[in-house]
Amino acid sequence: MNRTARHGSTLVVLALLFLLPVVVLVLVSLAPGWRFPDVWPAAFSLRGVDFFIRHHEKILMALASSFGFSLLTVAATLFMCLLPAAVFARHRFPGKTLLEGLLLTPALVPPMTFAMGLHFIFIKVSLADTIPGVVLILAMFSYPYMFRALVAGFQTMGEDYRICARNLGASPADILFRVEFPLLVPSIIAGGSVVFLVAFSEYFLVFLIGGGSVPSFTGTLFPLLSSSNRSLAAILTLIFLFLPVLLFVVMDISLMRAYRRKGMMSA
């Protein structure tokens, strides 16, 4: 087969599957009245945008809340996994393979199955309808991504930096925070991005544990999806797409700058 045609068809398929939906979302957000059988909207209007501007306070509040509890979830998973990942990367002990398998299961079994059991206790200990409660539940099934990234990070780092720092007289806390932590940042970002996305896009568990009290962006989007206000739903979906992308790009650039400043990367 002709090579150019093959590569071209690959890109066309990718664009049809993954890019076309975004284009259609942009059209839906600008054309609330777009209906069958028009392939291209008959008229454009800013009604959806207008609606968004009028309700921007409530929407931005929900967005900020989602952003906040997602970042807290990343922090919680980092706290949970940092030391255990070091142990897993460096030590051999009986039952390690089994324990690793067990520790990865929360990402696999349906989170409903343990979250709904916990719900009752969360109500009793007043964790239901609070941000800490939501963060705990989200962290509980997203931490395996952080854990795997950190174990891999510790393994690539090896033991040399730590031994060297210790020989130069660094305390264990110094070693962890001033030597190892900066070297782990790429792994933390890799794992953290997945954890962030899982937390940011979850609907049901935030609704279950957060009740109505913890506003979330998914919770705001959800009722709009099946309503007649498709434009607003499309606008919110687009925000959903571009905000994390923006976050990742900013993080990537600042990380690259920081490394270059420290001379850890060839310019």
Binding site: F222, F240, L241
Partner: peptide, 10 residues
């Protein structure tokens, strides 16, 4: 990577 970022409901 676009659908990876979009939540399931979207």
């Amino acid at each position: 990577k676009i659908p990876l970022i979009l939540p399931h409901i979207a």
